[in-house]
C-alpha cells in the first residue's frame, strides 16, 4: 500500500468519526427526551415511542440506510448521502439510548422524587438536581457500549456511497487488485477507535468511583 492509500484511509476515518460523533451528539439528548416521555407516561408520545423502538430494534442498519436514502426522496425530502446516513444512524441510536436512559430512570426511587416535591421543587428542578446527576452516572457504561456498537455499524453507510473507512478500503482494494492489505489496515483503524472509546469509559468510571465512592455499571 502506498502513502496515498493510507491518506485515503485516514480521510475515511475522519468521515466515520464525524458521522459517529454527530449521531451520538443528536442521539443522546433525543433518546433522553423519548425516555422522559415514556417515564412520565405522556399520553400519545408514550405509545408512539414504544412502537418506534419496537421497529428500530430489529431493523438492520443497512436496511435502514437504504430505506432513508431511497424512500424519503419519493415523499419530497431530498437528502444528500451524508444527511441520509446521519439520519439513519440517529434514528437507530436514539432508540437504543432511550432504552438505556429509561432503565437508568427506573433505578431512581420514587421517594426521591416525592422528597423533591416536598421541598417545593418544580418538576424541572427535581429532574435537574436529583434525577440527572444520578442518571448519567448509572447510564454511562451502557451508553458507551451503545456508542461502540454505533461505530461498529457505521460501515453500513458505505452502501449509499459515503466514503468512510470501509469504502475507502474497498476502493484501494479495487485500484491495487489487492483488497486484503487495505481491509487489514481498515480493521486496525476501527479497533483503535473502539479501544480509545472504551479506554475513555474506563477513565471516566475511575473518576466517578473516586468522586462518588461507587462504580457505575
Amino acid at each position: 500500500m502506498t502513502a496515498a492509500a493510507y491518506l485515503t484511509l485516514l480521510y475515511g476515518a475522519g468521515t466515520t468519526m464525524a458521522l459517529s460523533i454527530a449521531a451520538i451528539a443528536v442521539g443522546l439528548p433525543l433518546g433522553l427526551l423519548m425516555a422522559l416521555a415514556r417515564w412520565r407516561r405522556l399520553p400519545i408520545a408514550n405509545g408512539l415511542v414504544k412502537v418506534y423502538i419496537s421497529v428500530m430494534r430489529p431493523t438492520p442498519m443497512i436496511t435502514l440506510c437504504l430505506f432513508v436514502f431511497f424512500v424519503l426522496p419519493t415523499v419530497g425530502l431530498d437528502l444528500s448521502p451524508m444527511h441520509a446516513a446521519l439520519l439513519a444512524l440517529v434514528l437507530s441510536t436514539a432508540a437504543f439510548n432511550c432504552e438505556i436512559w429509561r432503565a437508568g430512570m427506573a433505578s431512581i426511587s420514587i421517594d426521591q422524587l416525592e422528597a423533591g416535591a416536598a421541598f417545593g421543587m418544580s418538576d424541572w428542578q427535581t429532574f435537574r438536581r436529583i434525577v440527572l446527576p444520578q442518571l448519567w452516572r448509572v447510564s454511562l457504561g451502557p451508553l458507551v457500549s451503545e456508542m461502540t456498537l454505533l461505530i461498529k455499524v457505521t460501515p453500513a453507510v458505505s452502501v449509499i456511497g459515503i466514503v468512510d473507512i470501509t469504502r475507502a478500503a474497498s476502493r484501494i482494494g479495487a485500484q491495487t487488485y489487492q483488497p486484503l492489505p487495505a481491509f487489514i489496515a481498515a480493521t486496525v483503524i476501527y479497533t483503535l477507535i473502539i479501544a480509545i472509546v472504551v479506554k475513555v469509559q474506563r477513565l471516566l468510571e475511575g473518576r466517578i468511583a473516586q468522586r462518588y465512592g461507587y462504580v457505575a455499571s
Partner: peptide
C-alpha cells in the same frame, strides 16, 4: 475481545478476500 472490536462488515470482507 479483539474480535468484538472489529465491525462485522470488515470481518466479512477479511474472510471473503482472505
Amino acid at each position: 475481545d479483539s474480535l468484538r472490536c472489529v465491525p462485522f462488515l470488515l470481518f466479512a470482507y477479511l474472510v471473503y478476500y482472505g
